[in-house]
């Protein structure tokens, strides 16, 4: 296991916006099938790190590798574009605000990229849409527009859209934090199902319960560094760092209050 190349390998990731250093020399590996939660206070750099993995927010320095292939290669513009578009087909991403394409139906949202990038025929694309939407429990709404769906339904379609590209890795950036509380569970269930299918996932979340029950490893970030990492049982129950304890105290108190 240890001598194998890691599935995802983040090396010396550093990112600054002007004088503001948002990521400070982050090193992180994720193995195949592993489910990693990234937690931490607002502004700690969680989204920035996640978005660096598919080079949506390019790092200032450092490397991101997927199965040994560098994602953020330095290449002439045209070659880089070709390379990154290819890499991104393997890296699914789910956003806090869904970002479904409102002018397309649910079916078209799911099939647009596979048709365009993999040359699927209409029949193949329809079959793919049916499969993927069944997987997230959205078969019934296949010909609806996003405007006709609830937030939870939108997010499930967004997950199906990402899965339709058959990615090797899925990134979630607070997939449930824009949802009404009663809609969170249906999305969590879909993510749990993916976990059971051994999809490799990196999940930025504020939901400690979910992180504890689904993830193999929890990474606590603060101020652009990884402060503490380990299995949820250790990070949540026996954190060693003061900052982790503070965060968990605040967060769990908040959580306890909001769920009253």
């Amino acid at each position: 296991m240890t001598e194998k190349t890691p599935f995802v390998d983040i090396r010396h990731a550093q990112k600054a916006y002007g004088d503001l250093e948002v990521l400070k020399d982050i090193n992180l590996t994720v193995s195949k099938g592993e489910i990693v939660a990234i937690i931490g206070p607002s502004g700690s750099g969680k989204s920035t790190l996640l978005r660096a993995i598919n080079d949506l927010d390019p790092l200032s320095s450092g490397e991101v590798l997927l199965e040994g292939v560098q994602v953020n290669k330095t290449l002439p513009h045209r070659q880089y574009e070709k390379h990154i578009n290819e890499m991104r087909q393997h890296i699914g991403m789910v956003f806090q605000h869904f970002n479904l394409f409102p002018h397309l139906t649910v079916r078209e949202n799911v099939t647009m990229a596979p048709k365009l990038l993999k040359g699927l025929s209409n029949a193949e694309a329809d079959q793919l849409a049916e499969e993927q939407l069944a997987h997230v429990g959205m078969s019934e709404r296949i010909d609806y527009y996003p405007s006709q769906l609830s937030g939870g339904q939108k997010q499930r379609v967004a997950i199906a859209r990402a899965l339709a590209m058959k990615p090797k890795l899925m990134l979630f950036d607070e997939a449930t934090s824009a949802l009404d509380p009663e809609l969170v569970e249906e999305v969590n269930l879909v993510m749990k199902k993916l976990a059971e299918e051994h999809m490799t996932m990196i999940i930025v979340t504020h939901e400690m319960d979910f992180a504890a029950s689904v993830c193999d490893r929890v990474i606590f970030m603060d101020g652009g560094v990884v402060v503490e990492e380990g299995p949820p049982s250790v990070v949540f129950q026996n954190p060693t760092q003061e900052r982790t304890k503070n965060f968990l105290r605040k967060h769990l108190a908040q959580y306890a209050e909001s769920s009253k």
């Binding site: 087909q89 991403m93 956003f95 605000h97 970002n99 394409f101 990038l117 990402a162 590209m165």
Partner: peptide, 11 residues
């Protein structure tokens, strides 16, 4: 977010 979502899919 629309451009981002599309780019993320590989477009």
């Amino acid at each position: 977010g629309q451009m981002e979502a599309a780019r993320t899919l590989g477009l």
